[in-house]
Design a protein around this nucleic acid. Sequence first.
DNA 1: CTTTCATTTCAATGTCTCTTGAGATATTGA
DNA 2: TCAATATCTCAAGAGACATTGAAATGAAAG
Lengths: 107, 107
Amino acid sequence: MDEPQALTALSALSQETRLRIVRLLVMAGPGGMPAGSIGDELGASSSRLSFHLTHLEHAGLIQSRREGRSIRYSAAYEALSGLIAFLMRDCCQGRPETCPPAALGNI
Amino acid sequence: MDEPQALTALSALSQETRLRIVRLLVMAGPGGMPAGSIGDELGASSSRLSFHLTHLEHAGLIQSRREGRSIRYSAAYEALSGLIAFLMRDCCQGRPETCPPAALGNI
DNA sequence: CTTTCATTTCAATGTCTCTTGAGATATTGA
DNA sequence: TCAATATCTCAAGAGACATTGAAATGAAAG
């Protein structure tokens, strides 16, 4: 993950509906959920939901596959962990003894 | 960290200058950096830098303390790890056997 | 106390983003 | 094929955000 990718991912996540979609899919696990179920859960109109799902997929945070009539979306776990790694990269210039996040141990 | 806090933090991070500031401070370690040095490093004007530093501080991602003539900023590591924990909370409904991020092990 | 340095405030401008509603597209089953 | 279901596309309007440059504030040093 490089800076432009991280910015795209963070922009995508910094919106209420999209953050809820991603968290829903993270909780759902690798199997994901059909678009319709996501919309029901979030109370979003079909066009609004489609707009945000497309946005998230372009950002690489989710992926989709057609399944019969509906389309099933799932979290892109590697992109999420890549984003997290990017945020903490080179933390404290590699000196773990003065590195608070390592000491906190709750990442 | 709750959803409104996470949204505030993600919005703050989803901007090039602010993401660079945070990464610079994460790399700098707990000691942080004076505002002027951050501006020099990023090539940002004083008003632009001040705008983004204020934004980040309001979002809880950085903190400041006066030091002589200048103001020293440092990363709020707890807020960052809290944000990361929020993103991955309840991952895969707590079933680690089907949990890709746990398997990837690179968070 | 005055000068100097560091940072902040302010208003104006241009740009980007979200939502809405109507219509289009694709897939399945009768 | 026809109808039903599920999702996507599009354009327009309202709102939010980043940048700029000039001026103002605040703290510290001489």
